[in-house]
Design a protein around this nucleic acid. Structure first.
Length: 885
RNA sequence: GGGACGUUAGCUCAGUUGGUUAGAGCGCCACGUUGACAUCGUGGAGGUCGAUAGUUCGAGUCUAUUACGUCCCACCA
């Protein structure tokens, strides 16, 4: 089965990845059903249904796959549920855009017609991203793929709405909300972003009606003066005291408005007078409420001026802004214009400048729901990785506002409210029109109501109002609150997501968890960073600085790409993506490949080899190798425990490359014990599998014939053998390594061939040490060619030799004529100087009675040992120096 | 305006409860084709831990102040 000629010099990922993925999937390894094992559940943060894979997804899903694959190997029943989100605003915007291209206006379509287009769009572009995830190696349970707009999940949202309404958490009311004039819908506070811009502050004169002069008011929104209903001053401001009780005239339209007094006004700011425009400013709305002022709305839904404005009607708000400044200038109303920097709010989805707008919307009252959700995180019932995000979470939860959940869109779950009677003021909440009719009749006492009198609310629900149910709805926990799946898989284990959606999604899922299942929806949240480029710019389509993930996989292999992403992504840290990382990942895969290739080259054709971990107790290299493996396994386990995935990979990288390839194989060359090497390989492949699934499965299957049930993907994670960890073996091998490195260093310094045989002397302290060292010296001999190797306590130093002190061994290299005495002296003097500096610091510690008295005994003993060692080595170096002259 | 976090080798980051003159990976420099691998090997050069002041026998590791940076939240016209 194993034939060297089959094994190319380079690892070729393309040919094996698709094959193994199909193998895993066809054998049902991804699929999970409840059984006696401990469940391990991960839910994919559902990407937008029509989205394509970007670097953020790559990082996020690689991490999920690593966690899931490892849990599976740990014997847990791992279930990774994939799926997509209907992304209400984003998708509707895309469909509208597409229709526009085809010459169709959304307004000309009925709701049903539009939805047909939307479904067509979803069917055409939907689910691509899930296919792409397979390329990455994601071990999702595809049979469980869900979509937030599929019937069951749609129903879940409706059930949820009805239940929350009945429990009194949902209300309908007129509030100042964020209006997106582009998408023509309300937004939640979370969907609004702040953007810093340069803007003009216009100072406008309002004339007092009594002819006593002007009031100058500063505003960055001069186009809203037609909606002004008052001018406010602070009651205690002497500067504006003379204005009390007066009225002023709005420029251009000459409407008279009163001057009112309100504490909100900052006397220090600007002129101390503020125009009050309740319809178009949150604060002004509050002031207006306090003073019982009228609300004059001069804007249309699309942000253009309406009839009420009287002037500039029909003009867009931004056009109107420049136009009105001209008019004001012409009329002599401008007192000045200054540029300044300010924050404007924009829609997260459409980038349109958000308009504060008074409107009738549906809200979720979050006061009660947020309480247990806050507690769950603060008490670490849900653990955040890294924990610093607890602060952000707490801050938000403590200041949580009611959630505006209605959207003036069609693509989404339609609110199950049914209006009857005049003016849509009366409604019932229920699932169907029939039910609504009964309820409406009962509620109104009007038995004559017919289905024609009943009309369903047009609005749909915020996308996140479906996503927040994801952990429950993917297991049909609304349809059947006690079904086998949700009993078994819920609460889920790990959630991997970006901190940007902590409020949108994480916090709300926790609230939903408590609201509907009385507990947490997951136990750990791993926050990834943002994927940025080398200049720390966020990767984005518009900047064009993002590589196509699929290109990366094609070029470097899925394993290489995954490893590359994992190399540099501690939890919560941004990933500064550099193709060099992926290159490193590919190189690592290649290194593994070639180590394996080397082993196969040692095999005889036709012979059967049984991988074994039966190490040779008498062989230091073996004892060392198995110690390194187990020590690393212990580290890796701990790293996983701590969600330090990068560190886990780093440990494995070093185990494979440094310990196994650079030392174990090198020491054993040319006749490596194949069965043992294969045994080692099996352990290594297991440990690496969660991170690099393809190459590890491929090698695993090449090591020997395996039945389906023996596939690496479903094999058991290695068992930790603490008894294999040996400080003694590791210390002894380190000494050999250091002796070898020291000699290599001498060779390099003297420009000697790495393979020229040299006469070596090793001078040690005692006969016992001679015996000890001699026992392990075969390793030194294996890796360094010697013409003569002597070891002893009183070795005579050959003429013209160079000496290096390694720990407490003096390594003497006979160089016969090649030695540059002066250079040697300089080197040794430098070494002495370094040691003396060290010695001094140790001495001063030990001379300090405070240290000796108060430091723990072992620390003091350690210092004394250091003192002794350093002094001894200095002595040695001095004698070497003396010999040189 | 409030808050969180960060500042350690050229770059990206580790440094657990304060105790070896600070570590890793990548990069860099030099040498190298000893038949697994040049997607490689060997060797090497690089930091005194943002600054200041404290606590302590001892501080990158604790405290305070300060500078700079990143992010989150926030209705100042």
């Amino acid at each position: 089965m194993l034939n060297v000629s089959d094994i190319p010099k380079k690892f070729e990922p393309g040919s094996v990845e698709a094959r193994w993925y199909a193998y895993w999937e066809q054998n049902g390894f991804f699929h999970s059903t409840p059984d006696d094992r401990e469940p391990f559940t991960v839910l994919i943060p559902p990407p937008n249904v029509t989205g394509v894979l970007h670097m953020g997804h790559m990082l996020n899903n690689t991490l999920q796959d690593v966690l899931v694959r490892r849990a599976r190997m740990l014997g847990k029943n791992a279930c990774w549920v994939p799926g997509t989100d209907h992304a209400s605003i984003a998708t509707e915007a895309k469909v509208v855009q597409k229709l526009r291209k085809d010459g169709i206006k959304k307004g000309d379509l009925t709701r049903d017609e539009f939805l047909k287009h939307a479904w067509a769009w979803t069917d055409t572009h939907g689910g691509i991203i899930l296919k792409q995830l397979r390329t990455l190696g994601a071990s999702c349970d595809w049979e469980r793929t869900r979509f937030t707009m599929e019937p069951d999940l749609y129903d879940a949202v409706i059930d949820c709405f009805i239940e929350l309404y009945e429990r009194g958490h949902i209300y309908r009311g007129v509030r100042m909300i964020n209006w997106d004039p582009e998408a023509k819908t309300a937004l939640s506070d979370e969907e609004v972003l702040f953007k810093e811009v340069r803007a003009k502050m216009v100072h406008i004169r309002y004339a007092c009606t009594d002819g006593s002069g002007d009031v100058v008011i500063a505003t960055q929104r001069p186009e809203t003066i037609m909606a002004d209903v008052a001018v406010a001053i602070h009651p205690d401001n002497p500067k504006t005291a003379h204005l009390k009780g007066k009225t002023v005239r709005i420029p251009l339209i000459n409407r008279e408005i009163p001057i009112i007094e309100d504490d909100y006004v900052d006397p220090e700011f600007g002129t101390g007078a503020l125009k009050v425009t309740p319809a178009h400013d949150r604060n002004d709305y509050e002031i207006g409420k306090r003073h019982n002022l009228e609300v004059i709305d001069i804007l249309n839904a699309d942000g253009s001026l309406n009839e009420t404005a009287q002037i500039l009607v029909g003009l867009d708000r931004f056009k109107a802004r420049t136009e009105i400044v001209k008019l004001l200038e012409d009329g002599g109303f401008i007192a000045g214009v200054e540029e300044y920097t300010t924050n404007i709010s924009v829609s997260e989805r459409t980038d349109a400048v958000v308009e504060p707008r008074l409107s009738l919307q549906w809200f979720l009252d979050t006061k009660e729901l947020s309480k247990p959700a806050l507690e769950a995180v603060m008490s670490d019932e849900i653990r955040f990785h890294p924990p610093k995000f607890k602060n952000t979470y707490r801050h938000w939860m403590e200041n949580i506002q009611d959630w505006c959940i209605s959207r003036q869109l069609w693509w989404g779950q339609r609110i199950p409210a049914w209006f009857y009677g005049e003016g849509e003021q009366e409604y019932v909440i229920c699932r169907t029109a029939e039910e609504a009719l009964d309820k409406a009749r009962a509620k109104s006492g009007n038995e004559k109501l017919t289905s024609a009198d009943i009309r369903q609310e047009d609005d749909v629900l915020d996308t996140w109002f479906s996503s927040w149910l994801w952990p429950i709805s993917v297991f049909d926990g609304f349809k059947d609150k006690d079904n086998a799946d949700i009993r078994y898989y819920y609460p889920t284990n790990d959630l991997v997501t970006a901190p940007e959606i902590m409020f949108f999604w994480v916090a709300r899922m926790v609230m939903a968890g408590y609201a509907f299942r009385g507990g947490v929806p997951f136990k750990n949240v791993y926050y990834t960073g943002i994927v940025r480029d080398k200049q720390r710019r966020k990767m984005s389509k518009s900047l064009g600085n993002s590589p196509d993930p699929l290109d990366l996989i094609a070029q470097y292999g899925a394993d290489g790409t995954r490893a590359g992403m994992l190399f540099s992504s501690p939890a919560g840290n941004d990933l500064l993506f550099d193709e060099a990382l992926v290159e490193q990942g590919r190189n690592f895969a290649n290194k593994i490949w070639n180590a394996f290739r080397f082993i196969t080259m040692q095999m005889e054709v036709g012979k059967t080899y049984t991988p074994t971990l039966d190490f040779d107790e008498s062989n230091l290299a073996d004892r060392w190798m198995r110690s390194r493996i187990m020590r690393t396994l212990k580290e890796v386990n701990q790293h996983f425990e701590d969600y330090r995935i990068s560190d886990a990979l780093q440990s494995l990288y070093s185990l494979v490359w440094d310990d196994f390839c650079d030392w174990y194989i090198e020491i054993n060359k040319p006749d490596v014990n194949v069965e043992r090497a294969l045994g080692i390989f099996e352990v290594l492949m297991k440990m690496l599998h969660p991170m690099m699934p393809f190459i590890t499965e491929d090698i695993w299957q090449r090591i020997r014939e395996r039945s389906t049930s023996e596939a690496l993907m479903i094999s058991a994670w290695p068992e930790l053998r603490e008894d294999w960890i040996s400080d003694d073996a590791e210390a002894r091998l380190v000494l050999q390594k250091e002796l070898i490195s020291a000699l290599r260093n001498v060779r390099a310094g003297k420009n000697l061939s790495p393979v020229a045989p040299l006469a070596i002397g090793l001078s040690v302290e005692s006969d016992a040490q001679t015996t000890e060292l001699e026992r392990d010296l075969w390793i030194f001999r294996k890796l360094q060619k010697t013409s003569d190797l002597r070891i002893g306590t009183s070795l005579e130093k050959p003429k013209g030799s160079v000496s290096v002190v390694v720990r407490n061994v003096e390594l003497m290299v006979s160089l016969d004529g090649l030695i540059d005495t002066e250079a040697e002296k300089t080197r040794i003097n430098g070494e002495i100087q370094r040691l003396e500096g060290f010695l001094k610091s140790v001495q001063s510690k030990l001379l300090n009675s405070g240290f000796v008295d108060r430091a723990p005994a072992d620390v003091v003993a350690n210092e004394r040992q250091k003192l002794a060692d350093a002094s001894q080595n200095i002595e040695k170096l001095r004698s070497i120096l003396a010999d040189l002259s």
